[in-house]
């Protein structure tokens, strides 16, 4: 019971912080909007990429959404590191809340921010003519995919953060990780047109599976092969949540 109360309190904390920082939310969606509104239509007019009959802007929409989700997850996974530098993490450790609730609760910050991105980018995609699948089952999967991706990448960033303990060392990391992840995936072009080496890298990139899953559920409306994507995502998220939890002790000391 105290476990759930604490996690809910952390969610409320994040919601209240967002309310005071609307500018930040808006600046974060500028880049994804540029991809959709500028890059998308221009590339679509070339008709150079084989997208299996999906309009090009619709093809890149899941990639753009998830790039944004990945970025905020990696960024807010770090929140806990910043709170280690301040005294907040120390203080939380002395409250009656179980430690796992602290890790999960603070990571929930990234899930909330990720959904904020999704809720802003998707209507814009709709406005410029992207058609999404209005099926409740598909929408449910969309929510699951975004949540797992967000938890996975924030665990990944906490794990990395346990090695580089200061904020300064981590400042540029969001950009440094997310852009290569974005380009080495099926976000803006299909994997099968890539040179073999990049193809191999993409298949090892968790973002590829997230994007494939989101494309299937949000744009195409098929559950075929979804299981592979979801299993891959679950493996990724589990591995890094475990690694982050094991290494978490290093952050405390």
């Amino acid at each position: 019971m105290s476990f759930i109360n604490a996690v809910v309190a952390f969610v409320e904390l994040e919601a209240r912080r967002i309310r005071y920082n609307i500018t930040e939310v808006i600046t974060r969606v500028v880049q994804p909007i540029l991809w959709l509104v500028v890059f998308g239509p221009i590339m679509a007019s070339v008709r150079a990429l084989p997208t299996d009959g999906i309009p090009y802007i619709a093809f890149i929409t899941p990639g753009v959404i998830l790039q944004s989700v990945t970025f905020v997850s990696i960024f807010y996974g770090l929140t806990i590191v910043w709170e280690r530098e301040s005294g907040i993490l120390k203080k939380l450790l002395t409250t009656p809340v179980p430690r796992i609730a602290i890790v999960l609760g603070r990571s929930s910050a990234s899930v909330i921010r990720a959904f904020m991105q999704f809720m802003i980018i998707t209507p814009i995609a709709l406005l410029i003519g992207v058609r999404i699948v209005p099926n409740p089952l598909d929408i449910m999967f969309v929510i699951i995919i975004i949540t797992i991706t967000s938890v996975g990448f924030s665990a990944f960033s906490i794990w990395i953060a346990t090695f580089m303990k200061t904020r300064e060392r981590f400042m540029g990391i969001g950009q440094a990780i997310t852009m290569p992840l974005f380009f080495a995936s099926n976000s803006i072009y299909p994997i099968n047109i890539m040179p073999p080496i990049f193809k191999a890298i993409s298949l090892g990139n968790p973002l590829t599976y997230s994007i494939d899953a989101l494309r299937k559920t949000l744009i195409i409306g098929t559950l075929d092969g979804l299981i592979t994507d979801i299993v891959a995502l679950i493996i990724f998220t589990t591995i890094f949540t475990l690694l982050a939890s094991i290494q978490f002790r290093r952050l405390i000391e």
């Binding site: 109360n5 530098e85 301040s86």
Partner: peptide, 29 residues
């Protein structure tokens, strides 16, 4: 049974004083 104030900051500066207490009250149960 313990209260603790660390040497560094332990409040969120982008919230009001009342909101900080509200969040901590909920975390403490």
């Amino acid at each position: 049974f313990i209260g603790y104030v660390p040497q560094e900051f332990s409040v969120w500066t982008d919230l009001s004083g009342y909101e900080n207490l509200l969040i901590y009250a909920k975390i403490y149960g």
